[in-house]
């Protein structure tokens, strides 16, 4: 597990440094994720250490969002101005996204089920 933690830390710092050097718009963590996924794909699956590390950390995931979320108090002025955009995005945006994604994937996946049965 320590070895996996070291690898994850190295990948993250490499990713952040590369994102900074090349001024990429994506977060460095995304590059680290891509590299680790590629490594797992090559070796045919995650190693035990990484699996243990993930399973250990997964239940605490939401805790790690909290410091960023508290930042909303530093942006109450933005919220006061933007609340209508925020509300429309959450209610209308999420509703439409769920409906369209559900209908499209149902239509597309029905086809593969039929092909499998045929």
């Amino acid at each position: 597990m320590t070895r996996s933690a070291a690898i994850v830390l190295i990948l993250l710092i490499l990713g952040d440094a590369i994102a900074e050097i090349f001024a990429l718009p994506i977060p460095g963590a995304a590059l680290g994720l891509a590299a680790l996924t590629a490594a797992f794909a090559i070796r045919g699956g995650p190693d035990t250490g990484s699996e243990e590390l993930f399973d250990f950390a997964a239940p605490y995931f939401p805790l790690f969002f909290v410091p960023a979320a508290v930042g909303v108090i530093a942006s109450l002025d933005v919220l006061a101005f933007a609340w209508i955009h925020v509300t429309v995005a959450i209610v209308f945006g999420t509703g439409v996204t769920i409906l369209i994604t559900g209908l499209v994937s149902q239509a597309l996946m029905r086809r593969i089920t039929e092909e499998a049965q045929a």
Binding site: V8, L33, L36, P46, L63, F64
Partner: peptide, 30 residues
């Protein structure tokens, strides 16, 4: 908030580590 975040930084930074680790569930669903 800036003072709070300065102290709570380790929790915030750990978030990025968890993103890298998402490779595990991704490969499980491969």
């Amino acid at each position: 908030y800036e003072d709070y975040l300065r102290q709570a930084q380790p929790i915030d930074e750990a978030l990025a580590l968890l993103i890298v680790l998402l490779a595990v569930p991704l490969c499980r669903q491969f």
